[in-house]
């Protein structure tokens, strides 16, 4: 069964976890990524997909994955158990934004205008899809369940856009990178929404590995493969599909702003 057993050690298979930070629905992309990683690491690679961030984070912390593409928020929360492997580069920077989106015909540019909405979050462990908005509300000394009439999690940034576009939710919190890529690929969907607020620039969802990996060589090979991706033709085609420039090694301090938010929210209760 996927996710069970210590896959990274026994058969030499590298288990790589993916969260819905990017467009996991694209099977061509998944195949390309797998093939590239297998070629670059000379190891067999297994991509592990789960519905929620939490499932992937738990698998990672429990050392059932060699590495995983997670969000900055679970990274800072589990900082002591995880190490950074690589951070994606978007337009040359390892940074992204969180967007507050509303239906197309809504006006206003302040979160206060969203009071009473049905609000769609992406995932309770997502920085851009939950923590940023949660922090904004905490700064106003309100909690989501009282500020919004109703909230729900869609467990996918794309789903947040769908929920707002269809009118199921009047507003949503979404990853700005995912939203921008969707605006290119599915303009009809994003066209029904409006970006009401962009957050400050924050650390891009990173690839992390357990602090004490079972297969350090595997993690190292994976890190090498990711960092060299932009130099390989197949790697570049995957990066093109992902609308990324490459991966770089960044200090964990990149995620300090997110750590501050997490701490603030934790204090606010």
């Amino acid at each position: 069964m996927s996710g069970s057993g210590r896959a990274a050690t026994s058969s030499g298979v590298l288990s790589f976890g993916l969260t819905p930070v990017f467009l996991t629905s694209d099977l061509e992309l998944l195949d390309g990524l797998k093939n590239y990683l297998e070629a670059a690491t000379a190891r067999s690679v297994r991509l592990v997909l789960r519905r929620t961030y939490q499932e992937i984070t738990s698998l990672l912390i429990s050392n059932q994955l060699a590495a995983a593409w997670i969000c900055g928020y679970p990274f800072v929360v589990n900082r002591t158990a995880l190490d950074l492997v690589a951070v994606p580069l978007r337009r040359g920077r390892p940074l992204y934004q969180s967007y507050l989106i509303t239906e197309q015909d809504r006006t206003g540019s302040d979160i206060a205008a969203l009071k009473g909405d049905v609000h769609a979050f992406s995932d309770p462990d997502s920085n851009s899809g939950f923590l940023v908005t949660r922090t904004l509300l905490a700064e106003m000394s309100v909690r989501p369940e009282t500020f919004f009439s109703r909230t729900f999690f869609t467990y996918g940034h794309r789903n947040v856009v769908r929920a707002v576009a269809s009118g199921l939710a009047q507003s949503g919190s979404v990853d700005g990178y995912v939203y921008d890529v969707m605006a290119e690929l599915e303009p009809d969907l994003t066209g029904a929404t409006r970006i009401m607020r962009r957050s400050e620039w924050l650390g891009f969802p990173p690839i992390a590995a357990p602090k004490n990996p079972v297969d350090p060589a595997g993690v190292a090979a994976l890190k090498d493969a990711l960092l060299r991706m932009k130099d390989d033709p197949r790697g570049r085609s995957i990066l093109a599909m992902l609308r990324l420039d490459g991966f770089s090694a960044e200090p964990p301090a990149l995620f300090d702003t997110i750590a501050v938010k997490a701490a603030y929210v934790a204090l606010a209760g």
Partner: peptide
Amino acid sequence: VAASEPRQHPVG
């Protein structure tokens, strides 16, 4: 809980 036309039938 949910409807295919959420604007006509809002959640709740």
